[in-house]
């Protein structure tokens, strides 16, 4: 099929256009999303096409509008709620943790909850401690939530379509640093199944698991590692939960080494979950201790040099992978 090159922002926008045209129960709810097209311009043009009844601008009241999205999902609509930054989950966490996540269980499956909460993650643009966090681990620790972190335009569009069609609540995390990242997409933006990882580089010496922006840093590191004679395999989990443990285990059984690079929390985070799952299922295949590279256990710093130091970069990945393969 025909391919074109889009940015992640454009791919998400196109996916929303297509989904809303196909299903008139899909509505969008959030701050500045209608006329303004969203602060990251992901919803641009939707209001002109679908009108104010389906593109709902709200007051700065995350608890009320996330909760309204949950209630609307319980009663027949398919809301796509934009939570501008995942840090803002702090002001509406009850509606995410207790209401969205638990409703299907509490109904024992009688209720569907086709809710997508689109939000952003990712440090690196000087936004400071309260507009830069990557809270995928936090969301993933709550039973009932599906968590998606796409890294390229085709995945972003395909996974968003799947998330909208899914019967349960999905936290869809867009990395602020990747909105302008370009990549090929197939015409029609085919849906991509939730819960499926993708091997973005094949290799034989070490498995690197890295989602969202960290996948790009891992790919950059792989080039350097290759010139040093180390063949690294890179897996983009794409969906944080449910995690495609099988794909990661298969890779580790081949390479014998696991490095998880993640922008989430350094303690009890996504990297720890991957390491625990692989240790439990493929311990005998591990030739050295599995490792993780995460930011330090501090909030995201503001000053550019400090923020640069805070995020794992490709040099850190090269160093860690080299140490592991030499051990």
């Amino acid at each position: 099929m025909a391919e074109q090159v889009l940015t992640i922002r454009q791919a998400l926008n196109s996916a929303l256009h297509q989904a809303m045209a196909d299903d008139d129960t899909i509505i969008c709810i959030g701050e500045d999303i209608a006329e303004n097209g969203g602060v990251f311009k992901v919803t641009e043009g939707l209001s002109g096409k679908f009108g104010a009844e389906r593109m709902i601008d709200t007051p700065i009241s995350e608890t009320a509008f996330v909760g309204m999205g949950v209630g609307a999902a319980m009663t027949g609509l398919k809301p796509v709620v934009e939570l501008m930054f995942c840090d803002f989950a702090g002001v509406c966490f009850d509606q995410i943790m207790n209401q969205a996540a638990k409703a299907q269980f509490l109904s024992n499956g009688r209720l569907k909850l086709p809710l997508v909460i689109r939000t952003t993650m990712g440090a690196g643009d000087g936004s400071g401690a309260m507009h830069s966090a990557s809270l995928h681990s936090l969301f993933a620790s709550i039973a009932g939530l599906t968590v998606v972190c796409p890294s390229n335009p085709a995945d972003a569009a395909g996974l968003l379509k799947a998330a909208i069609r899914y019967d349960g609540p999905v936290i869809f995390m867009e990395n602020k640093q990747l909105y302008d990242f370009e990549g090929p997409v197939v015409a029609g933006l085919p849906e991509i199944s939730l819960g499926k990882a993708r091997t973005i580089r094949e290799g034989t010496d070490i498995t690197i698991v890295a989602a969202s922006a960290m996948g790009h840093r891992a790919l950059a590191a792989v080039e350097t590692l290759g010139t040093n004679g180390i063949s690294a395999e890179v897996i983009d989990p794409r969906t944080i939960k449910p995690l495609d443990v099988g794909a990661i285990v298969d890779s580790v059984e081949k390479t014998g080494r696991l490095l998880v690079v993640d922008e989430g929390t350094a303690f009890a985070g996504f990297a720890d979950a991957v390491i625990a799952a692989v240790s439990a299922q493929a311990f005998g295949s591990l030739r050295c201790a599995p490792m993780k590279l995460c930011p330090p256990d501090t909030p995201v710093p503001y000053a550019p040099a400090a923020e640069l130091r805070w995020l794992p970069d490709s040099a850190d990945i090269v160093e860690a992978a080299t140490n592991m393969t030499e051990a």
Binding site: T25, I27, E53, I56, T63, A64, F65, V66, G67, M68, G69, V70, G71, A72, A73, M74, T75, G76, L77, P79, D94, Q95, N98, Q99, A103, L106, S107
Partner: peptide, 25 residues
Amino acid sequence: FLTSNGIVGAQVPLAAGGALSANTA
């Protein structure tokens, strides 16, 4: 009767969602 709730006040935004669905319907 959509749901009762273990969190004081949390049921109120949910009813706004019910109102939104009713409005749309």
